[in-house]
Design a protein around this nucleic acid. Structure first.
Lengths: 341, 341
DNA sequence: TTGTATGCGTTATCAT
DNA sequence: ATGATAACGCATACAA
């Protein structure tokens, strides 16, 4: 208890009349311990307000009590939603959240992540899409020996390493909603190439279009990169089509907002002249005018589940498997109507 | 180089034929060092890819190489903007970013932060508004012995601990813009009580109104809490006024978006029936329809400056002082027009 | 300018 | 069930 003023394990040991190892056992909840001595030690701990030093533990265990959020995500709302979900779970634990963005375009991205993991040795790692789809990164975590959970639009790893949603079905449902409103010329603003989420969502769109007996038209699909601006550009191409589409499904809310913006610029009324559906249900969706019909992606819920897998006592297995698949549902607001006759 | 596979300072010392202390001096850039031996050590370091173990350093130095972002901020865009600015600077350093939200409503908030600081012992702390205005927290950082920088809407600490903007003047400019467009009945949606930013911005509004020879009317000011929904509620009260205001200045973009939403619901045209100005220039501002005239708050720039203060070599002083005050400027878009005759 | 001994606070090993 | 002693990897005090 000298310089820093913080009580150490030695103080506890001395005051409780035991060795530091015994105190260590109490802290780490070792099973082989006399109940009485444990109580005595815990009493001392509570009395002097002893808190184990994380740095010392990290050195001895070669493992930090940190959860790392590694991502390269273009969507601000999503990153924040994930952070909130994670932090909700971490709040009452000994873990803290480390945020580590990466550049998926960089050729040495994997090496950079390796250096990061070797240096920080986090207890667990949360991988966000799109880099969550990178198997090399998952292998890296395994190799370093830290837990990891990947977040994705479809399950592509074992249950203990995965929280995923059913994007394909959700999009199919959204497009069917458009179909049943009477739309036929339904275009899509797809996500960027190489994103699993983009692929799944496009599949859902194409399935619905096929089932409806409408052939999938290449020209009806414009690609964006999940940003507002790319949504604008894609919408411009789509609205130049003749005949004009009566509805657009966008792979995320940002791009849907861009499409809405372009429609406005062109004097089109939404939803009367053009119906729009987005994906994510980030806050922008309900703040837009008209409020955007969209697919709710349970981001924070998924992040909470991921955090539980990361810091949970159970080493995987158990009765997970049920709640690993999170269903996205259609939120009907005001951006969809019957097509103009 | 045993179990973990990572080379240690001992490996470097052995291979370079020097003591660990010499290696340590090289790492910490000790000035008193023979150039030749330094080069030799550095060659070995580069060759075997040695990286100092942060956990061991943290234990020995009683200080972690982490920058902590402590906040309780309702504005998602702002939090993310700050993170981006911080991370840009931290990217090429040995520092990592720890995100630690707190609950400013909790009675034991200060204690919680103290425990956090005592446990993690971060190298530096970034305090966001509104809790950046809490002097007790700043004192805490000092006491623990870690650097801190407070972000605020006006300078309320020494330069080395502060990055601030000129909210009051900026708002005065925004309101003058409305005035010069011919508006007289200009209402305000203020920020929550107890926020320095809310206070500064309201002062700016009131000054401009006074100077214009219009008395400040209490009923013209509705309070929100920086959220979209509170902006809606405030706008409803304001638009119920008779005669109706021709312009509204909102203390942030979120609330401005809420006001725009309400105007739409009531069938009012913006800007023809109602002009609106926001504050922040978060992405929502340009994505709205019509694009929102707003005051640009240089969040990321301020965060970068803060990060530099936190990890910079210079211990304050020097030629700072100039770039600590960040000017907010009016971004003119399409939500302002002359009032209807 | 460089090396030696010791400390940082915890966990692991191997006794007892 | 508990304890003495040695890691863990680096930094500091003090010598040389």
């Amino acid at each position: 208890m000298k310089k820093t003023g913080q009580p150490t394990i030695n103080d506890v040991a001395r005051l409780a009349g035991v060795s530091k190892k015994t105190v260590s056992r109490v802290i780490n909840q070792s099973p082989l311990l006399n109940g009485e001595t444990r109580d005595r030690v815990q009493a001392v701990i509570a009395e002097i307000g002893y808190i184990p030093n994380p740095q010392a533990r990290a050195l001895a265990l070669r493992r930090n009590f940190l959860i790392a959020l590694i991502h390269d995500n273009p969507n601000a709302q999503m990153v924040l939603g994930v952070q909130q979900g994670l932090l909700e779970v971490l709040r009452d634990t000994e873990f803290e959240l480390l945020v580590h963005p990466v550049d998926r375009g960089a050729p040495d991205m994997t090496d950079e992540v390796r250096r990061f993991l070797e240096r920080q040795r986090p207890y667990g790692v949360m991988l966000l899409p799109p880099i969550s789809e990178n198997d090399a990164l998952a292998a890296l975590c395994d190799q370093i020996g830290c837990r990891y959970v990947r977040m994705g639009s479809a399950p592509f790893d074992e249950a203990e390493h995965m929280v995923s949603s059913n994007d394909r079905e959700a999009v199919r449902g959204a497009v069917e909603h458009l179909l049943s409103a009477g739309h036929r010329r339904i275009c899509m603003i797809a996500g960027p190439h190489g994103f699993r989420s983009a692929h799944e969502r496009q599949q859902g769109y194409e399935e619905a279009i096929e089932v409806a007996g409408i052939g999938v038209q290449r020209t009806w699909i414009a690609q964006g990169d999940y940003t507002f601006e790319s949504g604008m550009r894609a919408a411009e191409r789509l609205l130049d089509l003749s005949p004009r589409p009566t509805a657009i499904f966008a792979s995320n809310d940002e791009m849907a907002a861009g499409a809405l913006h372009v429609a406005r610029q062109r004097g089109l009324e939404v939803p009367d002249d053009l119906s729009i559906i987005g994906f994510d249900d980030t806050s922008i969706a309900s703040h837009l005018w008209p409020p955007l019909t969209t697919v709710r992606w349970p981001i924070a819920t998924m992040a909470r589940a991921a955090a539980l897998k990361l810091v949970g006592d159970d080493d995987g297995g158990e009765e997970d498997g049920e709640d690993d698949l999170f269903v996205s549902t259609l939120i009907r607001r005001a951006s969809v109507a019957k097509p103009a006759a």
